[in-house]
Design a protein around this nucleic acid. Structure first.
Lengths: 192, 192
DNA sequence: CAGCTTAATGCAGATTATTCGCTTTAGGTG
DNA sequence: CACCTAAAGCGAATAATCTGCATTAAGCTG
């Protein structure tokens, strides 16, 4: 996923990548997400790989962490639940659960450190929003523009996770989706 | 600003901090914002300061960069222009100009790497929003909740800067503010 | 399927960054 | 003015990073 497009993707190269990714995940787990406990040599040893391999493939620790983060935060697949509101919830609620935990926020931060990875990841998210929107339109539902969905639902939630450290219940994702899609009906409708 | 609250803020300590901050800014300038050109020893030499001083005070390069970033991106002061819409524009437009440039985005990213600095900075921004809102209410204007201002204006703009690399004109900040404050009048009102 | 080609890895030495204990400096205080 | 102490300087020890060269194994060719 979002992997370096290697000319030789099979075999050893892939095994090394997997070993390194797993080593990072395991080490973060063991040290309660404490980045200070990680270093390239430590990851290398755990992965059974030479340090210089990591430097060559990922450049430095932050970029390795960003790669692991974007891999770990694998975008949900869009799923057809029959309604736009259902699709939006099925798609976005799991994201928020992932990202809003203390660990998820840290992983998100790791990803943000790498501009290219971040951009790819969020482009993919936007693609999913467009997919969901197209499903709705094919069904005959009216659907807001993808940009509006992002402005009203996605952006405020990501912003609050990142800058306010809000938890999933505080974020009221279902409520935000409902307000966007059914503005008349939903004036005061707390969900937690 | 947001400085380590030093028990002894005057004198040498302050001079060192200033020298180091200036060294970082100058070096970034010289190398076109290329982070790879910076290292703690390089900054130390330019600042005329010992490397170990930097390690002790800031911990590592990313945290130093975050400190410099939050210092550089000094929040605008709230200014009473007579109307809520004017105050919002006077306050937020300069932010967007700063942040949305390629250099500003990089600086924002530097800041985001440090959770504590980020949180302080955005808490300060939120305080300003509340100040603006209180000014408006004191004037007798009706004003949206601070949370709503952030959800509708601030969050989408920051999100798009960070994840879509949008430029200031694309972000249509004045338009966003107008739509929030005068929802009836503004249906289609491109500003660029 | 043996032999060839080459990207990717391993290895070891050189370089550079980071840490640490100790000494020195200079604001603040009585 | 002498004392106290947080912060800075210094240098040696440790650790991380980079680099050139040797080795490995995946993909290709015949």
């Amino acid at each position: 996923m979002m992997a370096t497009a290697t000319p030789r993707p099979g075999g050893r190269s892939a095994r090394v990548q997997q070993a390194v990714h797993e080593a990072v995940r395991a080490l973060l787990e063991e040290h309660g997400g404490d980045r200070a406990a990680l270093s390239v040599p430590v990851v290398a040893e755990r992965a059974g790989v030479n340090s210089s391999t990591i430097y060559r493939r990922w450049g430095d620790l932050p970029r390795l962490l960003a790669a692991v983060a974007s891999n770990r935060m694998l975008p949900e697949q869009v799923e057809d639940t029959g309604t736009l509101e259902g699709d939006m919830q099925a798609w976005f609620v799991p994201y928020v659960e992932e990202f809003s935990s203390s660990l998820g926020r840290q992983v998100l931060r790791d990803m943000l450190a790498d501009g290219a990875v971040t951009r790819d990841y969020f482009a993919l998210m936007q693609g999913h929003v467009e997919e969901i929107r197209n499903l709705a339109r094919a069904r005959g539902e009216t659907a807001p523009a993808a940009q509006e969905i992002i402005d009203v639902v996605v952006a405020p939630v990501i912003y609050r996770i990142l800058f306010n450290h809000e938890s999933a219940p505080e974020l009221r994702v279902r409520d935000r989706i409902a307000r966007l899609l059914r503005p008349e009906e939903t004036s005061a409708d707390p969900e937690d």
